[in-house]
Simulated scan of single mutants.
Amino acid sequence: MPAPPGRRSIDTSKRPFVLIWEVTQACALACTHCRADAQPERHPDELSTADGKRLLEDASDFGDGQLVVLSGGDPLVRDDVPELIEYGTDLGLRMTITPSGTRSVTRDRIEALSEAGLRRMALSLDGATPESHDAFRGEAGSFAETIRAMKDARAAGVPVQINTTVCRQTVDELPAIRDLLADLGVVMWSVFFLVPVGRGRILEPISPEEADAVMSWLGEVSDSEPFGVKTTEAPQYRRVRLQERRESDIGTVDAAGLRRRSGIVAGDGFAFVSHVGEVFPSGFLPASAGNVREEPITAIYRDSALFRSLRDRGRLRGKCGACEFRTVCGGSRSRAYAYTGDPLESDPLCPYVPAEYDGPLPWDDPTSVPSAPSRPTDAD
């Protein structure tokens, strides 16, 4: 198989860098941040195995090497996951999975997924100790099961990615989680900055200033650790890193360079298919652009008005629309939607104000974003 396409080589008007399929909302956990508001039982209208295979066939029309993430809920609630992974692999898709840290992730199931062609497994750690992680996940023993699953996956030859949610409850855990991941040999740390959807509405986000500080720290982690670091719903990470490069005189970044390095945001390089087939720009932006039972995912992604608007950075409003970093960043469209109901509005987590912008700011409303700035350090 040819090497999978790199992020910069993908024309995101034609195909997403990441396609997530939420195969079920069923899950044994009751995590306090759950985007899906997961339920104990499967929904009767979930996409069937046959529906899922048609979705994977359509996804293969995006091009060879399309990345597909099987998500949930807990996708391993379904018994057909190995069959779906094998089917997608045979179509030339890069199949990955994000199971819950429960007893469902047995060694035998991991080995079956590996034999089916699984390319990566992503597990969640939101605390560096059993006490902090289990409290966040709402299930005693989740930490131990997650660590055990990580080790079993590595033994089966499956690379492991760790996902961590950043909010007031977890931010002080980040340095210790970083140390734990270095010891466990993961390949990627994906850091999710809270978007208040689902059960996540009850959690407290960090402030915009603190978000920038955390992203600066994550840049240092990326430079020093053997695993990769990426952010989700935080495209301002790229703005922070570029500003630091300018300040340290390491290379130059001009407007043309920014255009060439466009960031990936909801609807622009990213698409999400719900358990019942609705297509969203992101799982954190629950506005439907169509249903895969009615039209192919390729047509919805490429041609729907919602997705096309999100790919046009010239349509952004507020300070995001005036920002010189909008092509490389673009702001979290999901967070803008969650706070304002308009996915083209400014991202309220970003503290940067363009020099020539004099319009209203998201934090002019004191109830919009809590403020408690600090920065994680190795001493925390």
Rank of each mutant, 00 (worst) to 15 (best):
E131Y: 07
P296D: 15
G141C: 10
V160K: 08
V187I: 14
P44L: 00
P5F: 05
V158Q: 12
G63M: 02
C34L: 09
R317D: 07
G263N: 06
A338R: 02
D365V: 03
E244Y: 07
T252V: 11
T340W: 01
V171L: 03
D183T: 10
K230V: 14
D61C: 09
G267T: 07
P159I: 06
L310E: 04
L118D: 00
G277K: 08
E86G: 14
D183K: 13
V23T: 14
G72C: 04
S222A: 15
R335M: 01
V195C: 06
V221K: 06
D11V: 14
P16N: 06
L91M: 12
G198H: 04
G277P: 07
G290I: 00
D303M: 01
R103Y: 07
S262R: 11
Q66G: 05
A305N: 07
A28V: 05
A379Y: 01
L361A: 00
A379Q: 11
S71N: 13
F193Y: 14
T102I: 05
A30G: 14
D90W: 07
G269D: 06
L56H: 10
V214S: 09
L123Y: 12
V186L: 11
D45R: 12
K53P: 01
P226W: 01
I297L: 06
A30N: 09
L67Y: 13
E111I: 11
P281E: 04
G331S: 10
L123V: 11
R201V: 11
R302A: 09
S262N: 05
H275G: 13
R241M: 08
P366G: 04
P373R: 14
G157R: 08
